[in-house]
Simulated assay, not measured.
Amino acid sequence: MRIRSSPTINEVNVLFLALGLLLLVFGSMAQQRDLYTGVLITEYIFILLPNIIYLKLRGFSLREVLGLKSISIRQAVQIIFIMIFAYPMAVFLNYIVIVMVNSMSQAMPIGVPVPTNLKEYIIGLLVIAVTPGICEEVMFRGTMQSAYNRIGDKKAILATALLFGLFHFNLLNLLGPFFLGIVLGIIRSKTGSLYGSVLGHTVNNGIAITIGFVLTGLNENLRNITEQAPVMPEGMQMIVTLVVLGGWALFSFVVLYLLLKNLPESNREIEAEDDYEPHEEDLVDRPEEIEYDSERFLWAPVIIIAGLFIFLNYRYFFLL
């Protein structure tokens, strides 16, 4: 008798669709009223809470599915450096898409407000860095990656990274999150702990907030330097930016690879909670039944989200 200790791919795909629709309909409405309050509502009520409720109702062990185990100080320090060197690569990938889209459309989405003082900076860190770091990691590197692990660790990392990218519903912010999703998935896999990917996600978003805050403080000096510098054609500016970002990203990627390769691995075995009681349908008599043929996977929910992603971005960038 074997116990199915994690959700199936079909189950998490349906969950992915449901939460994606919640995000698009109610999350967008909440964020339009007030961005920071809307983000808190979206992350905690529309992402984190449904995942926890689903796992508890299905009788799964939160500790086992999510990987709630401690990481070492050495792992934590190395994860911070991993995300520092992953950030330039994510920026470069997003910039490539921006250049491509900008050549066909002038429509640009409004980004997250840049903090202009210490109070706004701290609030930004809590709302934009810590909150998604917790809530989105519970969903993607916790619930979803645990389910997708049944098709293999590497495939699970790639699949959840792709779904993570689609879940942003922003063409200009697709490749960056996809790449970061791979990095966070590797961290989750090697450490066996969700805390590692939560730390990594929080550090990445914190870097973005911090850079924006620092540049705001230097804005006046940068404006003076820009006004005195010779004016370059827009096309040349893009080429120079691509070269600079590309060189920075290449160097960072080499260091990132070495850091990920040498990230200390942990014992992935986690004892189940004492009150974990599996459902009857989670008990299988034959070990081979735990393996699922890919043809039996329900991909319709993922296809629907991908279709919505394409439709919304095409409508915004090319029809407006």
Rank of each mutant, 00 (worst) to 15 (best):
M1D: 15
N13M: 03
V14C: 06
F16Y: 13
L23I: 00
V25K: 12
G27E: 06
Q31V: 10
Y44A: 14
F46C: 11
I47F: 06
N51H: 09
Y54R: 00
L62M: 10
S72E: 10
R74T: 07
A76C: 02
F81I: 00
F85M: 06
F92E: 02
Y95R: 09
Y95Q: 11
I98Y: 07
S103R: 12
M108A: 06
V112I: 11
P115V: 01
P115K: 05
K119G: 10
K119A: 13
I128D: 05
I128E: 08
P132S: 08
G133R: 09
G133Y: 07
E137F: 10
V138F: 10
G142P: 02
Y148Q: 04
Y148V: 03
Y148C: 04
K154C: 07
K155N: 15
L163E: 11
F164K: 03
L166S: 03
L171Y: 08
F178R: 04
V183C: 05
L184V: 00
R188T: 01
K190M: 07
L194M: 08
L199E: 03
T202A: 15
V203C: 09
I209Q: 11
F213Y: 15
V214K: 13
V214H: 13
L215W: 13
E220T: 12
N221Y: 08
L222P: 00
I225F: 15
A229W: 04
M238K: 15
M238A: 13
M238D: 15
V244R: 10
G247D: 06
F251V: 01
L256R: 03
N267W: 08
A272K: 13
D285G: 12
D285C: 07
P287W: 09
P287V: 12
D293M: 07
R296L: 11
L298H: 12
W299K: 06
P301M: 07
G307Y: 07
F309S: 02
Y316P: 02
F317A: 01
F318E: 12
